[in-house]
Design a binder for these strands. Structure first.
Lengths: 252, 252
DNA sequence: CGCTTCGTTGATGGGAATCAATAACGGTGG
DNA sequence: CCACCGTTATTGATTCCCATCAACGAAGCG
């Protein structure tokens, strides 16, 4: 129950008309991230604009709950969200963090398999699954891109499983930081030694299968070893990239 | 280094002509499992037959090694294989087990990300990735099916991650057995309380992020609790389905 | 029948979880 | 700007569970 904001339920969605400027921004996002630009005619672009809604998601808000029907797919344009699964006895797992450019909707299930919660003020593009189905049928390019993405996510999920199954806490954290850094680098287009951590320690713990205390101790250990620095609570500076990579078993 | 058979390298592939009957069987498999039957014309079926090779993989043989270029995709028709990743210091993870009906080739990487090893005498259908690419472009149905499959595997990978991150040994093993049972049920078309374990204890351990000893002890514990029986080393009989499911947290 | 491999069971130690206390941060209002 | 408060993060002490080390038992095979 961490970081639950006061009024954490989403307000009803504003209409597409009201959000037309947002919709255009979102379209841009969709086109850029799914790389289907060339496959769309002008009419199709307008069709997409009509069914696409840009939606603000304030920090702490829940975009979807586990078990609910999956009526929309999303692409994230701003902020950060977490995918959370909770067991009956309260054990929690953060399945992943969703950052700008990520697509939310690759699942074989008709129901949401996890809660989707904003860990920062965010903005997402929303498309009804039904419409998405139509879009995919008309644009093979889109389907191909989605398959590509699904395969990449599958690879990432397997890397994650390896980390959870066999890496020790410092190795897991190193792996996590390096992956965050890589994502941020591709997002920003340039590499930086600074990595921002929009999520709290508890979220990191629940993502890595550890406790918050162990995550905290591990941060301290990496700091003492001179591998990283923590200028702020939510910013990591990577001091020794090579050594960190060696610790993370080179991701392989 | 478990279960490495004496001559564990695959013999050079026999030609498609020599394996024509096998190829037909394999086609059947491909069609059935990828459900693209209706999308293929007669000519296309012949084209598929020409590029498809049914290949025996003896137990202990290695079908592919981590780091090698991915020149083929496979569907499995007989036997069982394991997907293995090994760290520099010998720590091992079994990413998954591949059973008849499974498709091997959903990856974003050009290189194999794990070793593929037969844990029983097996048979696979082999298609060059290049040809597969062509096939996909000509048959949107196929692409859609692959995306569907990728999404299902993604869901499964996430379930697995939850188990690795948060479940305790008995819960993990229960989850594992139930998933195996479910797969076997869909394969055979009917449900049975008997589940066969083609893999050894070490493989189960490396799949669940445990040691062989813990797996063995956990089997004993489940047996003593009356949840399962072990008629043979490689056969589990599920005695109390409901209780086992409760233990596995209902897979959610 | 002995060999080898694999699985089970036992004894021990280490490391992360847990419990508990302190410290740092972030926001709010004076 | 600073004092106050709730939340979050860090640090410390203890416990428990799994990995490790080691020995034993069982199964497949020549």
């Amino acid at each position: 129950m961490s970081r639950s904001a006061p009024g954490s339920e989403l307000s009803p969605v504003s209409s597409a008309a009201q959000e037309s400027s947002g919709a255009r921004e979102c379209l841009h996002c969709s086109v850029r991230h799914l790389s289907v630009c060339s496959a769309l005619s002008c009419d199709e672009v307008h069709a997409l604009e009509r069914i696409t809604v840009s939606l603000p998601v304030p920090m702490g808000a829940t975009l979807a709950r586990s078990g609910e029907p999956r009526t929309y797919v999303y692409t994230v344009t701003e902020g950060a969200l977490r995918l959370v699964r909770t067991l009956a006895d309260g054990r929690r797992q953060v399945n992943g963090f969703v950052l700008p450019g990520d697509y939310l909707g690759l699942s074989g299930s008709d129901l949401h398999r996890y809660d989707i919660e904003a860990i920062a003020d965010s903005r997402v593009c929303r498309v009804p699954t039904t419409q998405m189905r139509d879009l995919r049928q008309h644009h093979p390019h889109l389907e191909r891109k989605l398959l590509q993405r699904a395969c990449q996510e599958l690879d990432a999920a397997q890397d994650n499983a390896l980390a959870l199954a066999r890496l020790q806490p410092p190795e897991r954290l190193a792996d996590f930081l390096l992956r965050l850094a890589a994502r941020e680098a591709t997002l920003a287009g340039h590499s930086s030694n600074r990595v921002s951590l929009p999520m709290g320690r508890g979220d990191i713990a629940d993502h890595l299968g550890l406790t918050m205390e162990t995550v905290s101790r591990t941060f301290t250990k990496l700091r003492q070893q001179g591998l990283i620095a923590l200028p702020h609570l939510n910013v990591v500076e990577i001091l020794d990239f090579a050594e960190l990579q060696k610790l993370a078993n080179d991701g392989a």
